[in-house]
């Protein structure tokens, strides 16, 4: 079977984070929080998880005195997500009557 089911994207928050980073060059922590409607701690732990697998990279900076944490997808993260998508698509095609 083509594609690869990636455990990293089993969780819906991580799947959504990666979906967003596939179409946005970068996305910041607070915007993730608002769009996904999750708590700080929950979001932080999922982002940490993706970061540990080197699927996303973190860029911390300051806007005035406020800290701004931006995330972007790494090349290996994009490849892994593509393969995950392929797996899902094949699963759908195979189950077609």
């Amino acid at each position: 079977m083509k594609g690869n089911y990636d455990k990293a994207f089993e969780n819906v928050v991580r799947l959504r984070v990666m979906s967003i980073l596939m179409v946005n060059a970068e996305y910041d922590f607070n915007s993730f929080k608002e769009l996904l409607e999750v708590t700080d701690g929950n979001l932080a732990s999922h982002l940490k998880n993706l970061e540990k697998q080197e699927y996303i990279s973190v860029n911390k900076s300051f806007v005035g005195r406020k800290p701004l944490t931006n995330y972007s997808a790494t090349d290996s993260g994009k490849r892994a997500f593509q393969e995950h998508l392929e797996f899902l698509e094949n699963l759908i095609n195979e189950n077609k009557p």
Binding site: R16, S19, M22, V23, N24, Y27, L35, L88, E89
Partner: peptide
């Protein structure tokens, strides 16, 4: 459902 979720996230974030 997974694919629909992915598509909706891509759309809502852009």
């Amino acid at each position: 459902q997974e694919l629909a979720d992915i598509k909706s996230m891509m759309e809502r974030s852009t």
